[in-house]
Design a protein around this nucleic acid. Sequence first.
DNA 1: AATGAATGAGAGTTCATTCAT
DNA 2: GATGAATGAACTCTCATTCAT
Lengths: 196, 196, 196, 196
Amino acid sequence: MESIGDIRRTEIIEAFFRTISEKGFARATIREIADRAGCNHGLLHHYFEDKQAIIHASVEHAVNVYKQDLLEGLNKFESAAEQLRFLVPRYLDIGRLNLEISQAWLDLYALSKNEASIQKPVQACFREAREIISGVIARGIRDGEFRKVNARVMANVILASLEGATLLWVVDAEETPLKAIGKQIDDLIQTYLQKE
Amino acid sequence: MESIGDIRRTEIIEAFFRTISEKGFARATIREIADRAGCNHGLLHHYFEDKQAIIHASVEHAVNVYKQDLLEGLNKFESAAEQLRFLVPRYLDIGRLNLEISQAWLDLYALSKNEASIQKPVQACFREAREIISGVIARGIRDGEFRKVNARVMANVILASLEGATLLWVVDAEETPLKAIGKQIDDLIQTYLQKE
Amino acid sequence: MESIGDIRRTEIIEAFFRTISEKGFARATIREIADRAGCNHGLLHHYFEDKQAIIHASVEHAVNVYKQDLLEGLNKFESAAEQLRFLVPRYLDIGRLNLEISQAWLDLYALSKNEASIQKPVQACFREAREIISGVIARGIRDGEFRKVNARVMANVILASLEGATLLWVVDAEETPLKAIGKQIDDLIQTYLQKE
Amino acid sequence: MESIGDIRRTEIIEAFFRTISEKGFARATIREIADRAGCNHGLLHHYFEDKQAIIHASVEHAVNVYKQDLLEGLNKFESAAEQLRFLVPRYLDIGRLNLEISQAWLDLYALSKNEASIQKPVQACFREAREIISGVIARGIRDGEFRKVNARVMANVILASLEGATLLWVVDAEETPLKAIGKQIDDLIQTYLQKE
DNA sequence: AATGAATGAGAGTTCATTCAT
DNA sequence: GATGAATGAACTCTCATTCAT
């Protein structure tokens, strides 16, 4: 059972993402966000201490929404190879189908360098993603599915290619055939890891 | 021959990059930039129409400085494989050694979604990078060095992995072993392209 | 018999004094007062028309509590000299022992210049004090205890020295030896009035 | 030679006093002050870091303007008795003739309890006044003009009566015959100190 | 060319007040 | 009676921009 407070908080967070996605972080003012959330700007300060708190809550929310999906999906597969094969297109799909969030994340990445309060959850998010991926790879190596590689470094490479592809696509969707890129990344990795 | 105006303009552009790298785009005020450029803030409006113009000129400047280096390097190598082998670490090195610019670029990527005046040069920059890389791959295929792949898609994958690695590194340098990642990307690509 | 409404009103008034004493008038918000009164902020508007009304009621309340004590004390003494001798330390003691109220009064004095609704009760309070003191002096003169002075002016001087001493003490308690000052004021006045 | 900056700063400080005297501290907004200073509100932030800085500078300014006059006057007299006789009406006159500042001071006294940045200069102001007065008294005692009293305590009493008289007068000018009160205070003190 | 005084739009934030529950 | 969600006015402060000097 959700209280009206929880509902409002979620509305505000969603409005925040919609705003930075549509207008950019710099123009995501308290009043803009309130308009999109369909409420008075004063109400945002009723539910959140200040703007920082909205940002912070939003990042945490996004981390959960964005990445939780991956873990659930992974559990459906047995072998490490299959898990990786699932992971790559799914990772890109989440962004592609959730345009708002993908564009917003880019703003958050940029902000994280200079705002400690954002940096922490963003780094935590990447750390988690690295751990998921390197966990899959390590298991693949242990089970003899994959060739021996540095799982941590390889996870970074995979994460980089996925985040990089999303970045290219956010900056220039027309020139970035995201699906084909996803397939190519998948093929590249599978081929490499399974090479004897 | 550079006029004093050109010198001032260059100083301002460099000061702009230093500022967004050190303080973030949001805190890159006209006054901050002027301080770093060692001149009065009013003078910035003398040399540039408005703040947008400074940003625009800076992006164009950075595209030239940042990417031109790659082309020069590539010309030193004959084979496509060698060119690619040069490109990967060099691309990452430019960012790593020029921390300021790497961090600044991330801000510009984020801004580009919502600022048409930034979007154009940023997209042009990626287009150029893609063309350079896909050109190398296409030549490798034509010369029989590489297996047959879609050069355009493959170029996107390489560019994505390089930009993605830089992104990860900007967000969390400690957890991102950039050199090892570069080597792994290189190995991955070479292995894949040269596989029969 | 006090209704629950009267009890609440008194609680609110006391909470108001505690608040302006602890945080200053500027920070005495409706919510702060409500917190201290142990009730919801909305309830304050149920019992009082608006914030002005709380202030107004509080001033009137304080006038009664603060000054009534003096009259009761005075009645215990016969001669004017004894009454004055009682009055001086007692006046200072009330403030000293009731730090909260003394600090709050200072805020109210300051406000009274610009808020007619506060000015009236504050002026009434001073008028009453002047009348009590000048009454004592006038009786002392009539009874031959005191030398002939302008009772009204003398009352003002006594009131001024007492209020002034409290003011100094509120502003800087460490540098203001209130007890010694009280004794000196007493000695000064007694010596003067009884001089032949 | 005063720069335009110094002139503006002085104008702003004077406008600040006029504002809190006319409207009270609570309504002394940056815009109100700017209006009275005949300039744009943004300019106040050009000359002062923030509102606190305006308050701070104003208090320091007032201390100098208000009290310096006393020291100059004192030097014209030889004997301690004459100095005291000069001091009392002069102290009250400064306030009376400079209505704005007197009313403003009351606000500052009230604020000082809760604002450390105001408390310090206000306490310093009182400390200085106490030292001036106790210095005069101590000299009078040493020179055999005055009876032996605790100069520090006596100075507090005199200061209290003067500040208290001003307080009464600010709160209710009609009921406070400031001149007569001043004479009475003078007579009281002279009589007491010179009594053998 | 260079300065810095001056402007005004707009940001985040606070808070008294209202009102449905 | 009691709560807390909701509103809107007004506050301090920031900043790009203009302009007289």
